[in-house]
């Protein structure tokens, strides 16, 4: 039967093609779906892709960034206006993978992949799905169900205040390694205390998740060892980390507070 590729001028047309065929898959950068085909996944026989311009646009204006779902990690690294995200994009794969892997694909990447999605969750990003805004958290919650075949056109988020975005990825292999735990945080401070905090984890559940207990415990505290102690105490609340080839659930739970502490106390 073989495979085939169908390229459409718009995402909407690609969406129609996908809706019409249960054996079609959307092709972004190829790092997930082409691998599946190479490895003998015969559940699909058609790649569908779109060449719509918006998929590869980056706009940064009025304190908001909009990134096309087809933008690669390498483009993010090179984009001066998104400098704070460069360490996140650089944490994905090696040089060749970063030239291929896309923002949209990362949203679908199964654990232990998907570091960029962790950052998007901490940034409280909105996704453009069929022209409708969908919160990253909502999308991720429904990733295997309601949004399993969603086509994401772009992601957008308010640019964080300088110095408030923090990111850490613990992995076994340097410089390119799969995640043990990934943490992204947007922590704003006012007059020496934390005024707001958004914390997201990768590899602490079957998809990126927020850490509301930690966020609550941080607000009103100083960003010091003493100040964050209560937050660290609830660091693993609501997590269900996976066991995989990289690390066990036990290990992930044990080191999460350590990495969270180091991240929160970093300059």
């Amino acid at each position: 039967m073989g495979l085939g590729l169908k390229t459409f001028p718009t995402l909407a047309a690609a969406g129609e093609a996908l809706a019409a065929s249960a054996t079609a898959r959307y092709l972004g950068g190829g790092t997930l779906v082409v691998r599946s085909a190479n490895e003998g996944d015969v559940r699909f026989d058609t790649y569908v892709t779109a060449s719509e311009q918006a998929l590869t646009d980056i706009t940064v204006a009025d304190g908001r960034a909009t990134i096309g779902a087809g933008v690669t990690m390498a483009r993010i690294v090179r984009e001066p206006a998104l400098g704070f995200l460069a360490p996140v994009a650089k944490a994905v794969g090696g040089a060749a993978i970063r030239n291929m892997a896309t923002v949209g694909g990362n949203l679908f990447a199964p654990v232990p992949y998907g570091d960029f999605a962790v950052a998007l969750l901490a940034l409280d990003a909105n996704l453009d799905i069929d022209g409708q805004p969908v919160a990253a958290s909502t999308f991720l919650a429904g990733r295997d169900t309601t949004h399993a075949r969603a086509l994401v056109r772009s992601v957008s988020f308010a640019l964080p205040v300088d110095g408030t975005f923090k990111f850490a990825k613990a992995s076994r292999i340097r410089p390119k390694g799969v995640s043990v735990v990934t943490i992204a945080a947007v922590v704003e401070e006012r007059a020496g205390t934390i005024s707001s905090a958004r914390i997201a984890y990768g590899c602490m559940a079957d998809r990126p998740i927020r850490a509301p207990a930690v966020e609550m415990a941080l607000v009103g505290k100083a960003r010091t060892a003493e100040g964050i102690a209560a937050a660290l105490a609830v660091a693993t609340e609501g997590t269900t980390p996976p066991t995989d080839a990289i690390a066990s659930a036990w290990y992930r739970s044990e080191v999460l507070p350590v990495h969270l502490k180091r991240l929160l106390l970093s300059a």
Binding site: R172, I173, D244, I246, S248
Partner: peptide, 29 residues
């Protein structure tokens, strides 16, 4: 420090299938 096809031996679960999961020191290690 790194290598095994079966990280939870004698359990046969979670064996590495690729060079991301089968761990070896990278050029930064």
């Amino acid at each position: 420090l790194y290598e095994t096809t079966e990280p939870y031996y004698p359990s046969r679960e979670h064996g590495g299938r690729d060079f991301n999961e089968y761990l070896m020191p990278g050029p930064g290690d």
